[in-house]
């Protein structure tokens, strides 16, 4: 009985002291800090560990539960990227085509007396001694022989044969092609022909039948003249790359690099007189 009473008194005292200490500590600022630090020192490691465990387990659960959705989203995004890439490719092709056609149709403004027929190149001659191309427009579309043909850059050649839905075009570099021409700067006239001696090797043409001591030099632009009756005046044939002056009395001639890139020819315009 006495022991019980003593314990009760001790407990009351202990609690009272703790309360008094706590009140005293709370009354002092530094005391609060001590309490906070002590609490932090004891609790924080457990909190961190708990958080780490919960986060780890949670993310594992998340990844398990969300993997299907992520995979689905991933494949969706991949297919979107593919379709965007395809669209971009189409846009880029369309832009290139637009650029090409805009330049091509510039001829409409320069030659209002002509109407144009747009045609695509379908084939190139298979041998090394001629340069004839086939296009996908024929008499059905109003194409007729001897119509001039132009492309991005300048003159391609002329129509030599027409079928219902395709035509043959003899290009300026074909060894049988002959075109009346004029030098833009000096106004010297001559004839531009394909270089038969070399076939398609290097893909050049040359200007012959020039006046005595012509004023022609590398870099000069060669244009069509109306003399032949086939081509309108002023279509660009090419640029002079080399002039060969024959001192032994023979004819002078100039090697011409055509302004049209025949290796990458896709679309051409056939000029039809109105």
């Amino acid at each position: 009985m006495l022991v019980r009473k003593t314990r009760k008194i001790v407990n009351i005292w202990f609690v009272s002291i703790v309360i008094v200490v706590c009140i005293l500590l709370l009354m002092l600022n530094s005391g609060i800090k001590i309490l906070e630090n002590t609490a932090g020192f004891i609790v924080l490691p457990f909190q961190r560990a708990g958080n780490a465990i919960i986060n780890g387990v949670g993310s594992a659960f998340d990844s398990v539960f969300n993997s299907y959705a992520i995979k689905k989203e991933n494949s969706q995004l991949k297919s979107e990227i593919d379709s965007l890439k395809a669209q971009l490719q189409i846009y880029s092709e369309t832009a290139k085509e637009n650029e090409r056609l805009t330049e091509l149709f510039g001829y409409l403004e320069e030659y209002p007396e002509y109407e144009t027929i747009l045609a695509s190149v379908t084939a190139f001659s298979p041998d090394n001694w001629s340069m004839i191309i086939v296009v996908n427009k024929g008499s059905q579309h109003g194409v007729a022989p001897d119509m001039p043909v132009v492309a991005q850059g300048g003159l391609v050649g002329r129509v030599i044969e027409v079928s219902d839905n395709w035509s043959k075009i003899m290009t300026v570099i074909d060894s049988r092609s002959k075109i009346a021409a004029i030098v833009e700067r000096s106004r010297d006239t001559g004839i531009v022909e394909g270089v038969v001696e070399t076939g398609n090797f290097l893909g050049r043409c040359r200007m012959i039948n020039m006046p005595f001591k012509p004023s022609i030099m590398p870099g000069d632009t060669i244009l069509t003249s109306e003399a032949g009756g086939v081509f309108p005046k002023g279509l660009v044939i090419g640029r002079v790359s080399e002039v060969s002056q024959n001192r032994t009395g023979g004819d002078d001639f100039a090697i011409i690099v055509p302004s049209v890139d025949f290796a990458h020819l896709e679309d051409v315009l056939i000029l039809k007189e109105k």
Binding site: A123, N128, G199, N200, G203
Partner: peptide, 19 residues
């Protein structure tokens, strides 16, 4: 023939095409 007049002609070396 189609191969020769379309693709092969664009693979020329110095203007020389195979047949």
């Amino acid at each position: 023939y189609v191969l020769q007049t379309t693709l092969i002609n664009r693979l020329s070396i110095f203007g020389v095409v195979p047949d």
